[in-house]
Nucleic acid binder design. Structure first.
Lengths: 192, 192
DNA sequence: GATTTTTTAGATCGCCCGATCAAAAAAACA
DNA sequence: TGTTTTTTTGATCGGGCGATCTAAAAAATC
């Protein structure tokens, strides 16, 4: 019973993701968001509770569509080391195109220190990335394309570190040489 | 001619640094800052022009007192590799103590994408850090404590990447194991 | 001591913020 | 068709924001 919602939930959350991603949590106003989502402010509050509630939904949506999707691609790849190289090539290319960086890393910086509950979600999101790297490295080690002598946890963390710093430097507008240099020294080389 | 200023400029800028460092640029209000600096709002505007002007001064002060000071310590160290290890040990310890991270990295994330002029200052600041690392690595190579076969620019950038990601993870409240793992795989080992 | 210049204190400006409210609209039930 | 439940609209709330204004206070110059 009751009036139907006039919006598609995934669509409006995607619009919210775009807003938070571009300008951050604090600098994106409810009015900005409502305009992007093409709905009234009261509808927004009725559907998502408050700004924080909407941000949590947006972050989960970003995790599903960006992080988890990419980790699933790694898991599905026939050649794990090549897939990692592709991943980082795309990362560098995306980082040179725009300055949005990664919503997860942006939120880690802006929101985590003042919202510990959200901080835990963000930490979990990064852990999923780390674990995805670790699985892929282990597959590459079993396959023989990565030295099995290294601890896969350490390599995974080195890759996570590279992702984070590239995402930070993307927001600074740093050049290709710097980003590629960071990726090169974190990623196990292709030919052996 | 004219009335003398009732405040010590370095003191009040230090207070501004503390404010911006703790809460970021956008979330620190002029009233917050004026209270910390123990001066009236009008005096603040009279002395620094506007909020952005104060932030620029605060960032320069941070560069002088934190970044450049630490780079000077590296340059002055008798044992360059040991000094680098000390630097990163201190970095990890500080990152476990509080979530402020690094004002330069915080500003890179929050301010650089929307203020290109300030972004250039931040980029210059990080370049100074990178150059400091490079000089220290080169000294270590001449000394024989670091493999002279590596390109010092690449090692320096790997260290910069480690600093950045540790600073990000500090704001997330990540644990010692993760931070140390990142540092360990970026830093040339001590014994050879 | 009068004048000029600068800094101070406190009030205030217009604006935008997150959030809420009352009332109308739309759908499901009786 | 009348009742009930939910969503929508548009106005509005109190509050904090960056910035400015006026006037008084303090110092240097004449």
């Amino acid at each position: 019973m009751g009036r139907h919602r006039a919006f598609d939930e995934e669509e409006v959350i995607d619009a919210a993701v775009a807003g938070f991603w571009e300008k951050g949590y604090g600098a994106t106003s409810i009015r900005d968001l409502a305009a992007r989502m093409q709905m009234g402010g009261a509808s927004l509050y009725n559907a998502f509770g408050d700004k924080r509630g909407l941000f949590i939904r947006a972050l989960q949506r970003y995790l599903d569509l960006s992080s988890r999707r990419r980790m699933a691609e790694l898991d599905a790849a026939a050649d794990p080391l090549a897939a990692l190289h592709d991943f980082f090539a795309n990362l560098v290319a995306a980082s040179l195109c725009d300055r949005r960086g990664c919503l997860l890393v942006n939120a880690a910086m802006e929101v985590a220190p003042i919202d510990l509950e959200l901080g835990a979600d963000i930490r979990d999101g990064l852990k999923e990335v780390e674990d995805g790297f670790r699985r892929t490295i282990e597959r590459a080690q079993q396959e023989g394309s990565v030295d099995a002598g290294m601890r896969s946890e350490d390599v995974a963390r080195r890759l996570l570190s590279a992702v984070i710093s590239v995402r930070v430097l993307a927001r600074l507008g740093e050049d290709r040489a710097l980003l590629e240099s960071i990726v090169r020294s974190a990623l196990p080389p292709r030919e052996r």
